[in-house]
Protein backbone atom coordinates (compact mmCIF):
# COMPACT_ATOMS: atom_id res chain seq x y z
CA UNK A 1 0.00 0.00 0.00
CA UNK A 2 1.21 3.43 -0.85
CA UNK A 3 1.35 5.82 2.11
CA UNK A 4 1.85 9.27 0.79
CA UNK A 5 4.11 11.46 2.90
CA UNK A 6 2.08 14.28 4.47
CA UNK A 7 2.51 17.69 2.88
CA UNK A 8 5.21 19.83 4.48
CA UNK A 9 4.02 22.40 7.00
CA UNK A 10 6.18 25.22 5.70
CA UNK A 11 7.37 25.47 2.14
CA UNK A 12 9.80 28.10 0.99
CA UNK A 13 10.55 28.30 -2.73
CA UNK A 14 13.06 30.53 -4.43
CA UNK A 15 12.78 33.16 -1.71
CA UNK A 16 14.70 36.27 -2.64
CA UNK A 17 14.93 39.71 -1.14
CA UNK A 18 16.95 42.65 -2.24
CA UNK A 19 17.67 45.71 -0.08
CA UNK A 20 18.92 48.46 -2.31
CA UNK A 21 21.92 46.88 -4.00
CA UNK A 22 22.32 44.06 -1.54
CA UNK A 23 20.92 40.62 -2.28
CA UNK A 24 20.29 39.57 1.29
CA UNK A 25 18.51 36.33 0.51
CA UNK A 26 18.99 34.63 -2.83
CA UNK A 27 16.70 31.86 -4.11
CA UNK A 28 16.43 30.07 -0.79
CA UNK A 29 14.28 26.94 -0.89
CA UNK A 30 13.47 24.43 1.81
CA UNK A 31 10.54 22.57 3.30
CA UNK A 32 9.80 21.77 6.91
CA UNK A 33 7.71 18.78 7.89
CA UNK A 34 5.18 18.86 10.65
CA UNK A 35 6.71 17.89 13.99
CA UNK A 36 10.33 18.57 13.03
CA UNK A 37 12.92 20.67 14.69
CA UNK A 38 14.66 22.45 11.84
CA UNK A 39 17.69 24.65 12.33
CA UNK A 40 19.16 27.41 10.23
CA UNK A 41 22.85 27.94 10.71
CA UNK A 42 25.28 30.28 9.10
CA UNK A 43 27.71 33.09 9.74
CA UNK A 44 26.50 36.46 10.91
CA UNK A 45 25.07 38.24 7.93
CA UNK A 46 24.23 35.03 6.10
CA UNK A 47 20.60 36.05 5.95
CA UNK A 48 19.06 33.78 8.55
CA UNK A 49 17.14 36.41 10.50
CA UNK A 50 16.14 37.96 7.19
CA UNK A 51 14.49 34.68 6.25
CA UNK A 52 12.60 34.81 9.56
CA UNK A 53 11.55 38.36 8.90
CA UNK A 54 10.32 37.34 5.48
CA UNK A 55 8.27 34.49 6.89
CA UNK A 56 6.73 36.70 9.56
CA UNK A 57 6.11 39.32 6.88
CA UNK A 58 8.10 42.11 8.41
CA UNK A 59 9.86 42.35 5.06
CA UNK A 60 8.34 41.94 1.63
CA UNK A 61 10.01 39.38 -0.60
CA UNK A 62 11.35 40.50 -3.95
CA UNK A 63 10.67 37.09 -5.43
CA UNK A 64 9.72 33.58 -4.38
CA UNK A 65 6.94 31.90 -2.47
CA UNK A 66 6.24 30.99 1.10
CA UNK A 67 3.48 28.53 1.82
CA UNK A 68 2.23 27.53 5.22
CA UNK A 69 -0.18 24.60 5.45
CA UNK A 70 -0.99 25.24 1.85
CA UNK A 71 -1.69 28.97 2.24
CA UNK A 72 0.39 31.63 0.49
CA UNK A 73 2.05 33.91 2.99
CA UNK A 74 3.92 36.13 0.63
CA UNK A 75 1.25 38.80 0.35
CA UNK A 76 -0.34 38.63 3.77
CA UNK A 77 -0.10 41.52 6.22
CA UNK A 78 2.19 40.97 9.19
CA UNK A 79 -0.57 40.77 11.77
CA UNK A 80 -2.34 37.93 9.93
CA UNK A 81 0.50 35.51 10.43
CA UNK A 82 -0.20 34.79 14.08
CA UNK A 83 -3.73 33.71 13.33
CA UNK A 84 -2.44 31.08 10.93
CA UNK A 85 -0.42 29.51 13.70
CA UNK A 86 3.06 30.95 13.37
CA UNK A 87 4.75 32.59 16.37
CA UNK A 88 8.26 33.89 16.77
CA UNK A 89 10.88 35.28 19.08
CA UNK A 90 13.31 38.04 18.20
CA UNK A 91 17.05 38.23 18.13
CA UNK A 92 17.19 41.37 20.27
CA UNK A 93 14.38 40.73 22.71
CA UNK A 94 11.21 42.56 21.75
CA UNK A 95 9.16 42.27 24.88
CA UNK A 96 6.65 44.76 26.23
CA UNK A 97 9.05 46.27 28.69
CA UNK A 98 6.64 48.26 30.81
CA UNK A 99 4.27 45.34 31.37
CA UNK A 100 4.53 42.37 33.68
CA UNK A 101 5.54 38.89 32.58
CA UNK A 102 1.94 37.82 32.95
CA UNK A 103 0.72 40.68 30.76
CA UNK A 104 3.25 39.77 28.10
CA UNK A 105 1.98 36.23 28.08
CA UNK A 106 -1.63 37.33 28.01
CA UNK A 107 -0.90 39.50 24.99
CA UNK A 108 0.55 36.42 23.38
CA UNK A 109 -2.88 34.86 23.57
CA UNK A 110 -4.39 37.74 21.61
CA UNK A 111 -5.18 35.73 18.49
CA UNK A 112 -7.60 33.57 20.42
CA UNK A 113 -9.53 36.55 21.63
CA UNK A 114 -13.29 36.20 21.52
CA UNK A 115 -14.32 39.58 22.87
CA UNK A 116 -14.70 42.91 21.13
CA UNK A 117 -14.08 46.47 22.29
CA UNK A 118 -17.61 47.10 23.49
CA UNK A 119 -17.75 43.87 25.42
CA UNK A 120 -14.45 44.73 27.01
CA UNK A 121 -15.52 48.22 28.06
CA UNK A 122 -18.62 46.82 29.71
CA UNK A 123 -16.82 43.70 30.94
CA UNK A 124 -19.55 41.47 29.64
CA UNK A 125 -19.50 37.76 30.46
CA UNK A 126 -17.86 37.04 27.10
CA UNK A 127 -14.92 39.26 27.98
CA UNK A 128 -14.67 37.72 31.41
CA UNK A 129 -14.54 34.27 29.89
CA UNK A 130 -11.92 35.41 27.42
CA UNK A 131 -9.79 36.71 30.25
CA UNK A 132 -10.05 33.51 32.26
CA UNK A 133 -9.18 31.35 29.27
CA UNK A 134 -6.21 33.51 28.40
CA UNK A 135 -5.08 33.37 32.02
CA UNK A 136 -5.32 29.59 32.08
CA UNK A 137 -3.30 29.37 28.90
CA UNK A 138 -0.67 31.73 30.30
CA UNK A 139 -0.46 29.75 33.52
CA UNK A 140 0.15 26.54 31.56
CA UNK A 141 3.08 28.22 29.88
CA UNK A 142 4.33 29.65 33.18
CA UNK A 143 4.34 26.17 34.61
CA UNK A 144 6.13 24.70 31.62
CA UNK A 145 8.84 27.34 31.59
CA UNK A 146 9.18 27.72 35.34
CA UNK A 147 8.31 31.42 35.41
CA UNK A 148 6.02 31.41 38.44
CA UNK A 149 8.20 33.57 40.63
CA UNK A 150 8.39 36.26 37.93
CA UNK A 151 4.73 36.30 37.16
CA UNK A 152 4.00 39.83 38.37
CA UNK A 153 7.45 41.32 37.79
CA UNK A 154 7.92 44.10 35.35
CA UNK A 155 9.86 42.74 32.40
CA UNK A 156 12.28 45.64 32.21
CA UNK A 157 13.89 44.69 35.51
CA UNK A 158 14.40 40.99 34.85
CA UNK A 159 17.70 39.29 34.02
CA UNK A 160 18.51 38.66 30.37
CA UNK A 161 18.12 34.88 30.51
CA UNK A 162 14.67 35.13 32.05
CA UNK A 163 13.57 37.63 29.43
CA UNK A 164 14.58 35.29 26.63
CA UNK A 165 12.43 32.60 28.19
CA UNK A 166 9.52 34.99 28.64
CA UNK A 167 9.68 35.72 24.94
CA UNK A 168 9.44 32.04 24.13
CA UNK A 169 6.56 31.78 26.59
CA UNK A 170 4.76 34.66 24.94
CA UNK A 171 5.08 32.94 21.57
CA UNK A 172 3.72 29.72 23.04
CA UNK A 173 0.62 31.45 24.36
CA UNK A 174 -0.67 31.87 20.85
CA UNK A 175 -0.86 28.07 20.50
CA UNK A 176 1.23 28.03 17.34
CA UNK A 177 1.75 25.16 14.98
CA UNK A 178 5.13 26.57 13.96
CA UNK A 179 7.48 28.32 16.37
CA UNK A 180 10.29 30.47 15.00
CA UNK A 181 13.13 30.90 17.48
CA UNK A 182 15.74 33.49 16.60
CA UNK A 183 19.00 32.63 18.36
CA UNK A 184 17.33 31.37 21.52
CA UNK A 185 20.56 30.50 23.28
CA UNK A 186 22.50 33.69 22.60
CA UNK A 187 23.50 35.29 25.86
CA UNK A 188 22.54 32.25 27.94
CA UNK A 189 25.03 30.48 30.15
CA UNK A 190 25.58 26.72 30.20
CA UNK A 191 22.84 25.86 32.67
CA UNK A 192 20.35 28.04 30.91
CA UNK A 193 21.25 26.54 27.55
CA UNK A 194 20.81 23.07 29.04
CA UNK A 195 17.35 24.03 30.27
CA UNK A 196 16.60 25.52 26.89
CA UNK A 197 17.45 22.27 25.14
CA UNK A 198 15.03 20.40 27.37
CA UNK A 199 12.31 22.95 26.78
CA UNK A 200 12.76 22.83 23.04
CA UNK A 201 12.35 19.08 23.15
CA UNK A 202 9.33 19.35 25.44
CA UNK A 203 7.70 21.93 23.21
CA UNK A 204 8.35 19.80 20.18
CA UNK A 205 7.40 16.38 21.51
CA UNK A 206 4.73 17.03 24.13
CA UNK A 207 3.06 20.08 22.64
CA UNK A 208 3.56 18.86 19.10
CA UNK A 209 4.89 22.18 17.87
CA UNK A 210 7.13 22.33 14.82
CA UNK A 211 10.21 24.41 15.46
CA UNK A 212 12.33 26.43 13.08
CA UNK A 213 15.32 27.96 14.79
CA UNK A 214 18.31 30.08 13.95
CA UNK A 215 21.29 29.11 16.04
CA UNK A 216 25.02 29.49 16.41
CA UNK A 217 25.57 26.96 19.18
CA UNK A 218 26.37 23.76 17.28
CA UNK A 219 26.08 21.56 20.34
CA UNK A 220 22.54 22.68 20.88
CA UNK A 221 21.78 22.32 17.19
CA UNK A 222 23.12 18.77 17.03
CA UNK A 223 21.26 17.83 20.14
CA UNK A 224 17.76 18.98 19.29
CA UNK A 225 17.53 19.28 15.52
CA UNK A 226 16.13 16.79 13.09
CA UNK A 227 17.49 18.63 10.08
CA UNK A 228 19.78 21.56 9.52
CA UNK A 229 20.10 24.09 6.72
CA UNK A 230 23.39 25.88 6.32
CA UNK A 231 23.35 29.32 4.73
CA UNK A 232 26.11 31.53 3.49
CA UNK A 233 25.80 35.00 2.00
CA UNK A 234 22.08 34.65 1.49
CA UNK A 235 22.22 31.31 -0.26
CA UNK A 236 21.60 27.73 0.76
CA UNK A 237 24.75 25.67 1.11
CA UNK A 238 23.19 22.37 2.04
CA UNK A 239 20.34 20.72 3.92
CA UNK A 240 20.59 17.51 5.91
CA UNK A 241 20.93 15.95 9.32
CA UNK A 242 23.23 17.73 11.77
CA UNK A 243 26.09 15.29 11.15
CA UNK A 244 25.75 15.48 7.40
CA UNK A 245 25.80 19.25 7.42
CA UNK A 246 28.68 19.58 9.85
CA UNK A 247 30.83 17.35 7.73
CA UNK A 248 29.85 18.86 4.41
CA UNK A 249 32.93 20.33 2.71
CA UNK A 250 31.16 23.52 1.56
CA UNK A 251 29.98 24.24 5.07
CA UNK A 252 33.42 23.68 6.52
CA UNK A 253 34.90 25.94 3.93
CA UNK A 254 32.35 28.69 4.52
CA UNK A 255 33.01 28.71 8.24
CA UNK A 256 36.69 28.18 8.57
CA UNK A 257 38.43 28.02 5.27
CA UNK A 258 39.80 24.74 3.96
CA UNK A 259 41.55 23.13 6.89
CA UNK A 260 40.19 22.36 10.33
CA UNK A 261 36.86 21.01 11.38
CA UNK A 262 33.98 22.65 13.17
CA UNK A 263 35.05 21.60 16.63
CA UNK A 264 36.11 25.16 17.26
CA UNK A 265 32.46 26.15 17.11
CA UNK A 266 31.31 23.74 19.75
CA UNK A 267 31.03 24.88 23.32
CA UNK A 268 32.87 22.52 25.57
CA UNK A 269 30.82 21.60 28.61
Amino acid sequence: MHSQAPAPLLQVEGLTVRFGGVLAVNKVSFAIDRGEVFSLIGQNGAGKTTVFNLISRIYDATAGEIRFAGQRLTTMPAHAIARLGIARTFQNIELFENATVLDNLLIGAHVHRTSGLLGDLLFLPGSRRNELHARERAEDVIELLDLARHRHSRVAGLPYGVRKIVEIGRALCSKPQLLLLDEPSSGLNLEETEDLAWWIQDINRHLGITILMVEHDMTLVSRVSDRVLAMNQGEVLTIGTPEEVQNHPDVIEAYLGNDDDLSGLRRHP
Partner: peptide
Protein backbone atom coordinates in the same frame (compact mmCIF):
# COMPACT_ATOMS: atom_id res chain seq x y z
CA UNK B 1 -10.58 50.32 34.13
CA UNK B 2 -12.36 47.53 32.29
CA UNK B 3 -10.35 48.40 29.23
CA UNK B 4 -7.16 47.87 31.16
CA UNK B 5 -8.02 44.47 32.50
CA UNK B 6 -9.04 43.05 29.14
CA UNK B 7 -7.52 42.22 25.79
CA UNK B 8 -8.50 45.57 24.26
CA UNK B 9 -6.43 47.52 26.74
CA UNK B 10 -3.55 45.12 26.49
CA UNK B 11 -3.44 45.58 22.75
CA UNK B 12 -3.01 49.32 23.35
CA UNK B 13 -0.11 48.65 25.71
CA UNK B 14 1.41 46.27 23.19
CA UNK B 15 1.30 48.88 20.44
CA UNK B 16 2.88 51.38 22.81
CA UNK B 17 5.76 49.20 23.88
CA UNK B 18 6.72 47.30 20.75
CA UNK B 19 4.88 47.65 17.48
CA UNK B 20 6.78 44.89 15.75
CA UNK B 21 6.10 42.24 18.32
CA UNK B 22 2.52 43.42 18.71
CA UNK B 23 2.06 42.70 15.03
CA UNK B 24 3.66 39.31 15.33
CA UNK B 25 1.17 38.54 18.10
CA UNK B 26 -1.62 39.18 15.66
CA UNK B 27 -2.50 42.73 16.67
CA UNK B 28 -3.63 44.86 13.75
CA UNK B 29 -1.70 48.08 14.28
Amino acid sequence: VNLLRTASGRSFLAVRDSEISAESMGINL
